[in-house]
Design a protein around this nucleic acid. Sequence first.
DNA 1: TACGCAATGTTATCTTATAACATGACAGCA
DNA 2: TGCTGTCATGTTATAAGATAACATTGCGTA
Lengths: 136, 136
Amino acid sequence: MTAHVHNHAALTKNQALVFGELSKAEGPLSAYTILDQLRSEGFRAPLQVYRALDKLVEFGMVHRLESLNAFVACSHKDCEAHSAAAFAICEKCGQVTELSDAKLDDRLRELAEATGFALTKSVVELRGICADCKAA
Amino acid sequence: MTAHVHNHAALTKNQALVFGELSKAEGPLSAYTILDQLRSEGFRAPLQVYRALDKLVEFGMVHRLESLNAFVACSHKDCEAHSAAAFAICEKCGQVTELSDAKLDDRLRELAEATGFALTKSVVELRGICADCKAA
DNA sequence: TACGCAATGTTATCTTATAACATGACAGCA
DNA sequence: TGCTGTCATGTTATAAGATAACATTGCGTA
């Protein structure tokens, strides 16, 4: 499991456990799903998961999907390299694809600037059917 | 209060009540806030609100803000006129501005097409500080 | 050792959303 | 008139997501 390399301070035990679950998952996981999967590791309360997730999101290693109330591991080697992320979420199979697009980011920045809005974060989530499911 | 004109079948009583609350609100409201405001009208359960909201969203008269778990009345006269909507959400005052931008929509469509993704809906929510709050 | 700080653990509670089932209102038609 | 289908409503209970408040532990450093 060396898909992710991050130059942050070493993760704490709980952060590492939560990140591990997200990394080996096919798609997004809810906080409570993670909790259940980590009960065997001694997890007992939602807060143990939420606290770890908060940090991981802060580090940029995990993204929160607002329209799903769920979380995914970042698909980039070094998550600091990309600014904003967009996601394509398949409503059939649940698969999530992370997209990075400079033109999109530029346009969002322009829109914000045009109205004097100081952008801190952008949420872009495309809902639909992925190519695989469409073919099937 | 004639800010909104819609060519849909007349709203039912509950739909009209919920839409009324959203229309006169300054910003987005949560389903439970709406419920509390409509208790005087006889509302007793969340489902009464959620059912009305589902229809209003379907009609395009109300938008759901995924990153807030809240709802706003559409700011356009005829909500069918615009395809996708983007929102700028001020994290200081809570104000929400609805944006319609063809270039943004085009770019999102291009991104979807490039990966064979069949787009049904796009969620775009900009988080930051609005011009007014920045000035203050 | 003693202090400070960050991570952790624990209990309770709050907020958001839906399932399941019962009732009411009304239109169309035999 | 009485039947039937359908849509809106009402009601109770519960699921799912998130946080508040407070206690405890582990560890580096003065």
